Computed example of a mutant assay.
Amino acid sequence: MDNLLDLSDSLYLDILDFAHTTPHWFQKLAEVWTELGLLLFGVLFIAGWWRMRRGSDDAMALALLAPLATAFGYVVSEGLKSLVDEERPCRAMTGAPSPLVDCPAPGDWSFPSNHSAIAGAAALALALSWRGIVWLTAPMALLMAFSRVFVGVHYPHDVTVGLLAGGIIAYVVMKAARRPVVALVDSARSSRSSAVVWCVGRGPRGRASARPGGARHGAY
């Protein structure tokens, strides 16, 4: 374990040294991405929910579960932080290059990285709910994790564990809650409340009933 932590320390210094050799605009881009990436995941959650309003009950259930599973990933990560109490490298490592951003306040612990946990959970949850999007979400999550080391506020082992923990928690939540949420979506789509139906969409049945003469097809 000590060898792994020493390797993480060494990688942190190498990455931060490299960060200081990059152009100023690139450093700013990395700084912005550490926060913007989270916003983009939120946009993808909304887009996934919207496109599944005409999808099956199962597809809508997964789209609704994706942000919930991500939230669980964050909660678990935050719980681990309070148990481990690892100091940020930008304070703990004497003689290290200065971080590119302000070092988080004392008490804002380093292990694991919440940003990475959210990114890992979001990437996996979206991949489970939106076929083919893993080719976008996986690189986004990896870049998010790397950016946290690049700007100097996390060790490599912080972001690695964050990604893995977030992804595992998201997978468990998506699988465990899938069946009851499918039943909930099916019930909501049969609701007499137009607001409830709008939230979950009418699904494929809505498209069929909207066709001219659609209600008469079963009589023939």
Score class of each variant (00 low, 15 high):
Y74V: 10
V134F: 04
F18Q: 12
G132E: 14
V161L: 10
G132H: 05
S110D: 05
V200T: 13
V182G: 01
K175V: 09
P156G: 06
G218K: 10
L16P: 00
R88M: 02
V32G: 01
T70D: 08
A219G: 09
E86F: 10
M1T: 11
V173D: 00
A96L: 11
T137P: 03
A208C: 13
E86D: 10
A170Q: 02
T34F: 00
I168N: 06
A92W: 05
D108G: 07
D57T: 07
M93H: 07
F45D: 00
S209N: 09
G203A: 11
V200W: 04
V76Y: 03
G37Q: 05
D102V: 08
L136E: 03
M93S: 00
Y155H: 06
S194F: 03
F72R: 06
A59R: 01
V149F: 06
R207W: 12
D6P: 02
G107L: 10
Y12K: 05
G79H: 15
Y220V: 12
G48I: 03
V32I: 09
V101A: 11
V134D: 01
A215C: 10
M60V: 05
I118W: 01
Y155I: 03
P180A: 15
T137R: 08
F41L: 07
P204N: 13
A210G: 12
I169F: 04
G37A: 02
F26W: 15
S191A: 15
C199V: 09
R148A: 02
F111R: 01
W198M: 14
R207G: 04
V75H: 12
P106I: 07
Y171C: 08
G214T: 03
G107M: 14
G95V: 04
L136M: 14
I46R: 05
T160Q: 09
L128M: 14
V197T: 10
P104I: 08
T21Q: 13
A177Q: 13
G95N: 12
H157D: 08
A123I: 02
A30G: 07
R53L: 14
R54G: 04
L39H: 12
A63H: 00
P212E: 11
L29S: 14
A122F: 02
S82E: 13
A59S: 11
T22V: 10
D186R: 10
